[in-house]
Nucleic acid binder design. Structure first.
Lengths: 112, 112
DNA sequence: GACAATGCATTGTTTCTCGATGTATCGTTT
DNA sequence: AAACGATACATCGAGAAACAATGCATTGTC
């Protein structure tokens, strides 16, 4: 099946970087673990696919908001562990503020 | 000046259709008026440019969530008046629900 | 030995927002 | 009367981002 005209929309576009940064602020974690965490905390609402997650991590690496090294998971599997940098922590604050501001504005329209 | 690597980000991507539908649920309005309304209600936060607004309106017309006819504004200027269709009203409910659900999920991550 | 889950990542497609551009009218100021 | 800013329509091209599909490899379970 080549393509449906669907658009399941698992995410609010533009929020993925924020979600990853926030997750990593709790401590270093590997990619798969980030996805699991978002699923769990959001009650299965935030289903971030690998085709979204890994490009996002590359983006964040390029901006040096996270760094990475190879290591082992809790279950002893080889994995790349991502960690928030100081710059990333700053950026987390910036994006959290922007998000809150935007959501407030949208809520204002929706309840007008 | 050809281009900055900026990304001013006036909007949460994916929410423009919702904002337009909600605005039109208050009554028929022309494009410029929609932009003004969003600015006013959001305290200048939601700055929708024309390059975003009009393509969005075309999209909504194509899906028949709004219709349009030429008319006059309050100030007597010629303008295209957009109006929410019944299907658009249904879609407004759908998108409002989806948005609320997504924001709730993201808030859960941010406050975890 | 097959299969699901874990774990990495890239490629191609689509969708969306935005700045720039173009047209036209109206009211105010100079 | 000329200039200018605000009002009003719309399109085009560029860039960013999310997603499905795909590919590889390992581990644990049936």
């Amino acid at each position: 099946m080549p393509r449906s005209t669907d658009a399941s929309q698992e995410l609010l576009p533009g929020t993925l970087d924020l979600l990853i940064l926030k997750t990593l602020s709790r401590g270093p974690l590997h990619g798969y673990g980030i996805a699991q965490h978002l699923l769990a905390v959001s009650a299965e609402v935030l289903q971030v696919g690998e085709g979204s997650l890994y490009p996002a991590l590359q983006r964040l690496l390029g901006k040096e908001w996270v760094d990475a090294e190879w290591g082992l998971t809790d279950t002893g599997r080889r994995a790349r562990i991502y960690r928030l940098t100081p710059a990333g922590r700053t950026q987390l604050a910036v994006e959290t503020g922007k998000f809150t501001r935007m959501v407030g504005a949208i809520q204002a329209v929706l309840t007008a």
